[in-house]
Amino acid sequence: MDRRNRQKLDLLKLLIKKAITLKYKRTYLGIFWSLLNPLMTALIYFFAFKVIMRFQMEHYSLYLLSALFPWVWFSSSITLCTNVLTSNVSLIRKVIFPKHYLIISSIIGQLITLVCAIPILLGLAYYYGKTPGMSWIIGIPPLIILQFFIIYGVALAISIVNVYFRDMQHIVSVGLNLLFWMTPIIYPLEMIPEKYKTYLLLNPVAYLILSWRDVFLHNTLNWKGLFVSLVIAVIVLSLGIVVYRRLEKGLDEVL
């Protein structure tokens, strides 16, 4: 590897490290917040849906968490990346470096939560009497990679559009909320009326989330889900790159 690439790799590594460590600097619970936060959220949903609305479902906590943790990675990364260019103005205006590293490092920084959560999910699955299977090992890495590229594609476009059009950050927060309720995270897929099910394809993360759940809940690889997610990843990433390239040129004049 030549010197220039070495330096870029070091920079990316350091930015990732910074993204992970800075999140919890000066907090007492540190990295535990990564887990505590989604667990608390899950507890709230559990109370609302299982206790109050009385969902009749087996293993509801595993059902919920196996979809919620991947979703949290998606939504928190998108939220963070929306502002990543506008909040690093001083860096972008003073140093030349690949700006998309900021996006990559933010996404990987958020991935830590999910990585810490996977043992919890596996433990929970084991507790509910699911036997450990191969899909636990071979299913998780491709899901992480697919989801990374979907997030990356969306984040590339959103982050750069937000520089020109600051309304984007507000649109994103509403959009994520909408997407959350459009995805079978807290309710099962079967509850969606038949005639709306076809629209599920329009939701870039629905199949991904379903595949995540199948790994933990049914110990199977959802081949259809994986394939659809792959196609979505390719489309989203290509669009993201095109938008980013187009808008990157004028960045110095508006930032």
């Binding site: 070495r6 330096q7 350091l14 910074k18 800075l22 001083s90 860096l91 205006r93 140093v95 470096f97």
Partner: peptide, 24 residues
């Protein structure tokens, strides 16, 4: 540029040095 108040002087030096084109 790129200095972060919560990182130590040493960590900031490393970050800044790499941003300026050094390898780690």
């Amino acid at each position: 540029a790129g200095f972060h108040p919560d990182l130590t002087g040493r960590e900031n030096l490393l970050m800044n040095g790499i941003l300026l084109g050094n390898t780690e």
